[in-house]
Simulated assay, not measured.
Amino acid sequence: MSIQRVAPGPRMSQAVVHGNTVYLAGQVAQGASIAEQSRAALQRIDELLASVGSDKSKLLSVTIYLADMATFAEMNSVWDAWVDGANPPARATVEAKLATPDYLVEFSAIAAI
């Protein structure tokens, strides 16, 4: 079975397709608030999924990393407006130290194609 790597770099690919499954790298974005960063990162997920012939209705699992769990409700307000309510993925949300203090949230996803 072939493996397709999307936007490969020296450390990672932005997405990897194997069979009928796409695995996305953690997506982060710049922004002054968790809402701004969440919207931009979720938009990037939409773009990556579209690039391999998928979309958010085919999400299987999403893991959300928050720099501060106190921002959970604000992130969820963006998530709730974005997620396909008829096809919500399995989801976990954890608090974690992210790559830089500028990042407030990171989304990692797996989807069907």
Rank of each mutant, 00 (worst) to 15 (best):
L24A: 06
L42A: 10
I3K: 13
V6G: 04
T100D: 13
N76W: 08
A29Q: 06
Q4Y: 10
D102C: 01
Y65W: 06
L104Y: 04
G85C: 00
A109I: 07
A96M: 05
Q27V: 15
L98T: 09
I45C: 02
A99Q: 06
L24R: 08
L66G: 07
L104E: 02
V22A: 05
A81E: 10
R91V: 14
A96Q: 08
V22L: 11
T100R: 14
A86E: 12
S57D: 05
E74M: 07
N20Y: 11
V94H: 11
I34W: 04
N87E: 03
I110F: 01
L60K: 14
G31A: 11
G9V: 07
T63A: 06
M1Y: 09
S13T: 12
S13L: 09
A73W: 01
A32M: 05
G19N: 12
M12I: 11
E106H: 01
A32F: 03
L66N: 07
L98Q: 09
Y103S: 00
S54A: 12
V62N: 03
W79P: 00
Q43Y: 02
I3R: 12
L60H: 10
L66R: 08
W82I: 03
R39D: 09
A111I: 03
I34Q: 01
L98M: 05
S2T: 10
D80M: 07
N87K: 12
G9C: 09
V78E: 15
A29C: 11
K58T: 10
W82R: 01
V16Y: 02
A111L: 00
R39Y: 00
G53L: 11
L49G: 04
H18P: 00
L104D: 04
A41T: 12
V16S: 03
Q14C: 02
A15F: 06
A90K: 14
A86T: 14
P88S: 10
L104K: 15
I34F: 01
H18I: 11
E47W: 06
A7W: 12
P89Q: 08
D46Q: 09
